[in-house]
């Protein structure tokens, strides 16, 4: 049947302009840094940072796009991920402190899996207790979800205490991989790999599965998804839990990157997360990915050239992008 044939790629008007921002930022960074090895180190550090922000932010952007919920409590799931990393790595000293890479990787993946499950379960409870009653009311959502995050942080304080915890990377994930004149941290390579796999998996799920189609459709017009006969509420809950699971995974990666852990760690990351999802286009996974990488890479270059400009640079990027595209890099096609 003719309908199964693909149109030539040229018939589909892909929007490449936002993607070009990455090489432009790279070239600018190259011109501003004194040597190629420094530029490579900064770029890879930026990519790793961007991947972590993306992992945390991807769930939040979908939750906003699909459910129109401003979840200011998303940081709570990052905190949970952080404490799970601490608890799992402490509970598995044989694997976490082993000198074998496979043991270290296994310990990390157990932590990631437990963080994802814990994040999802807490996410389900969070949606039920805090979010469900305030659908459709943004002001209440902000107040209630921030309140929810404070409660979760206080519970974490009760369990693990107020002192800052040290969370060490397993031995074989520490150190660098020397590459000619460049030294690349092993952990950053791992973070880039995990982030890339998660991004590719999300894209695959969104593009190739019925659930993915439903999420994409629901982000555009949830009422019409209902009118086609789908239980949108179940989809909401599933997506909320998945978003919380991803934040949990991001929390593990972030805490291992920082090496320290406090109950406020999730909240600290949220400013950056909100910048990224607004810049990317609310509800857009591709935009979120690109926005996260762009913000992190530019922030790294700025921090090297003029440290005091690091935070300003992220806001400047957001403002510049919004002046160019008021609804973000990849606004949803309503």
């Amino acid at each position: 049947m003719r309908c199964e044939s693909d149109l030539p790629a040229s018939a589909i008007n892909r929007d490449w302009a936002p993607i070009l921002l990455l090489p432009v930022a790279g070239v600018l960074g190259f011109l501003l840094t004194p040597s190629t090895p420094t530029w490579i180190t900064l770029t890879i550090a930026g990519l790793a940072m961007g991947m972590m922000i993306f992992i945390v932010a991807s769930g939040l952007t979908i939750v906003f796009g699909l459910m129109d919920v401003l979840n200011f409590g998303h940081g709570a799931f990052i905190t949970i991920g952080g404490y799970v990393a601490f608890a799992v790595l402490s509970a598995l000293p044989g694997l976490a402190n082993s000198e074998a890479l496979s043991d270290n990787i296994l310990a990390l993946f157990v932590a990631l899996a437990v963080a994802a499950i814990s994040g999802a379960l807490v996410g389900l409870a969070f949606e039920r207790l805090f979010v469900r009653k305030v659908y459709g009311d943004h002001l209440k959502q902000i107040l209630v979800t921030m309140g929810g995050m404070i409660i979760i942080e206080q519970i974490a304080l009760m369990i693990w205490g107020p002192q800052e915890r040290l969370v060490s990377l397993p031995p074989m994930l520490r150190g660098v991989v020397p590459l000619d004149e460049v030294a690349i941290e092993k952990y950053r390579i791992l973070v880039i790999a995990v982030g890339s796999v998660l991004f590719a998996s999300m894209q695959l799920i969104l593009a190739r599965t019925r659930i993915g189609l439903l999420v994409r459709a629901g982000v555009e017009d949830s009422e019409m998804v209902q009118a086609l006969g789908y239980r949108i509420r179940r989809l909401f809950i599933g997506v909320f839990a998945a978003g919380a699971a991803l934040a949990g995974v991001g929390g593990v990666m972030w805490v291992l990157y920082r090496g320290t852990l406090t109950a406020g760690i999730g909240g600290e990351l949220m400013t950056l997360v909100f910048i990224v999802i607004v810049l990317g286009g609310l509800g857009s996974i591709g935009g979120c990915f690109l926005g996260a990488i762009l913000v992190a890479v530019i922030s790294n270059y700025a921090a090297f050239v003029a440290p005091s400009l690091a935070l300003v640079s992220t806001i400047a990027v957001m403002v510049a992008v919004l002046l160019w595209r008021p609804f973000g890099l990849y606004p949803l096609k309503k």
């Binding site: 189609l213 994409r216 459709a217 982000v219 555009e220 017009d221 009422e223 019409m224 009118a227 949803l332 096609k333 309503k334």
Partner: peptide
């Protein structure tokens, strides 16, 4: 408004 999902 036709309810078309434009991104699909």
């Amino acid at each position: 408004n036709m309810g078309i999902f434009g991104g699909l």
